[in-house]
Design a protein around this nucleic acid. Structure first.
Lengths: 348, 348
DNA sequence: TTGAAAGCGCTAACAC
DNA sequence: GTGTTAGCGCTTTCAA
């Protein structure tokens, strides 16, 4: 008894630098390490008195199981990787928030990576080494070589927002429809010189939204004018530049569709800074329906899936795939709708 | 030779589900596991021919070291934990982005947690179990019991944005000065009924900013009117409610200082929705200088540290602490400045 | 310069 | 219901 008290004292005293292990708990409680393990993993298989004693000892020692050691043997880390677009785009702010919180709700930690457009492979290697239980990824390109690697790795995954050209598991909005709807909205307001500013077309969202844009023009019998289409990287400076270019045409467009709300926000800033009025001088619209877009000072007309978060559905599915191993192909494409606000009006 | 080719074939064929280990690399290359390990950890200690062979084998097998196993023995995970406020506050969007990217630049992965105000202890336990190499944390309360635990844990850490009442390592803005400066700015515009909407005062930023507010009033010989001070949780609905309450006074304030830009944005939305004009009817200002605040459609007067990112400095220091173990107390408090935009004007 | 062997802290058969 | 033992995939002495 004395010895126990003595070593207990020592164990409590020492700082976590040299941490308490299940061996310590075992020794001090008088049971084996296996039983200590059972208390954590199959508590119903251990005598309730024993359990009580061990739990008390754990508390006394402030024992925290070493998850690294546990993972090495279980081959599960209770961690998911989120490979996201950068937070400069408010869309990813909302998805990151949702995903981390939802993961946590399900008992998963989240390793977050931001893909800046040319570090995907590096990120992927890190993710593989980290032995995450699943991957949630937005930043997949249309013909991304990573797709095959991920598929072959056997690691459960879901894409959201973007998808590869063929195959893969994902939840993405019907982006072609999104592009079509917003353009149709503008055509309905009598606009016929409608410009379009897009990110690079090796990304599904950008390609498909533009396809929708063109489809709407075609249906509206408006000729496609390539001088009104700008494909650019989605950076602030480029979007600004393209916006100013369009505005300064001798025959400028009466409306601009931006491929994302984030880009529209940049465009709006540029247009207002020029002293122009939105929508009196020019209508603008985005796609994604970021939450800032509904702010009274912004009031950006957009396209979105209100009441539905694709990243959350993707996460729910991922959880299911991680627990039940029967992985069937999952491809979900909800239809979005236009949210009309104050940045679009009838062409005057 | 034949045997090697044969087993190589088998190893290449199999999917990563049962992954290649350093043992496989060893067997196939004809060296020991120890030497394979050396190739990764002290390559200069291994013969260059041997090294070349082993590296080639690694590539053939697409070997990725199991970081979990490595961590178990090295006791380092090359992972930091970011315990952040939620992304609803744009301030944390920018810090999260910076931190994850900077960590990655230094070769660290980032486990991200969002503290919603009552899961800090739970998060902390997860962090301890995950054996992260360091913690970057914004969501510390003034008298947080976690401080002692973190200090005792021996895990390198830095707070940013918020700090505990006493002790701790942190980089935080001079928040009292921030509150004082913005209030002085308004007093300089002849405002003398200035309202203040703050988050809970158990958080250093809120307490100190309010102290600065009061100090400025005192210096300006303006009596403190408690009916113009609202302490609330920082949620959207509460900030809205308080804003409307103030506006509907028979003798409303001519200016409102919000403790954060995020709160000011909510207030702005409420005020504009009422049909009032900013700043003609009422001036408003925030603190933090979020990037959205400089948007032309927002133009929020704020207080910030332009050209300086406290989270980045905190991260740099953390890296240093994690590598050189001589942990000295670090408390850094840069002075902010007012950024005047269009939401504040002379009282009419 | 390389290999053999021990062990990080945990879990999971298997035995009792 | 509990203990003994082996081993997850690495790194790291210690010998050779």
């Amino acid at each position: 008894m004395y010895t126990y008290t003595n070593s207990l004292y020592k164990l409590i005293e020492r700082r976590s630098v040299d941490l308490v292990s299940s061996k310590d708990v075992a020794k001090l409680s008088g049971f084996s390490q296996a039983t200590v393990s059972r208390v954590m993993n199959s508590p119903d298989k251990v005598n309730s008195k024993t359990k009580k004693k061990i739990l008390k000892t754990m508390e006394q020692l402030n024992y925290q199981p070493n998850l690294i050691a546990r993972s090495l043997i279980t081959n599960r880390t209770k961690t998911i990787a989120l490979i996201s677009g950068e937070l400069h785009n408010a869309f990813f702010v909302e998805t990151t928030d949702s995903i981390v919180n939802l993961a946590s709700k399900y008992g998963y930690k989240t390793m977050v990576y931001f893909d800046n457009g040319n570090n995907a492979k590096e990120i992927y290697n890190s993710v593989v080494g980290a032995k995450v239980d699943g991957i949630l990824m937005s930043s997949i390109m249309l013909d991304d070589p990573l797709l095959e690697e991920i598929e072959n790795s056997g690691i459960p995954y879901m894409f959201f927002n973007r998808r590869p050209r063929r195959g893969g598991n994902y939840v993405v909005s019907n982006n072609k429809l999104a592009g079509e709807l917003i353009t149709k909205h503008l055509i309905g307001l009598n606009h016929n010189r409608i410009a379009y500013i897009s990110g690079e077309l090796n990304i599904s969202t950008f390609l498909e939204r533009k396809q929708g844009f063109e489809q709407a023009l075609k249906k509206g019998n408006i000729e496609i004018d390539s001088s009104l289409q700008c494909i650019t990287d989605a950076s602030t400076s480029e979007v600004e530049k393209k916006t100013l270019k369009l505005i300064n045409y001798s025959n400028p467009p009466s409306a601009i569709v931006y491929a994302t709300d984030a880009m529209a926000l940049v465009g709006m800033n540029a247009i207002l800074s020029m002293g122009l009025n939105i929508p009196d001088d020019i209508s603008i619209a985005g796609i994604d329906n970021n939450s800032i877009s509904s702010h009274y000072a912004i009031q950006l007309t957009s396209v979105g899936n209100p009441g539905f978060k694709m990243e959350e559905l993707a996460m729910e599915i991922l959880i299911e795939v991680m627990t039940n191993k029967n992985i069937t192909r999952r491809q979900i494409i909800p239809n979005p709708e236009v949210i009309i606000r104050r940045t679009t009006s009838v062409k005057n």
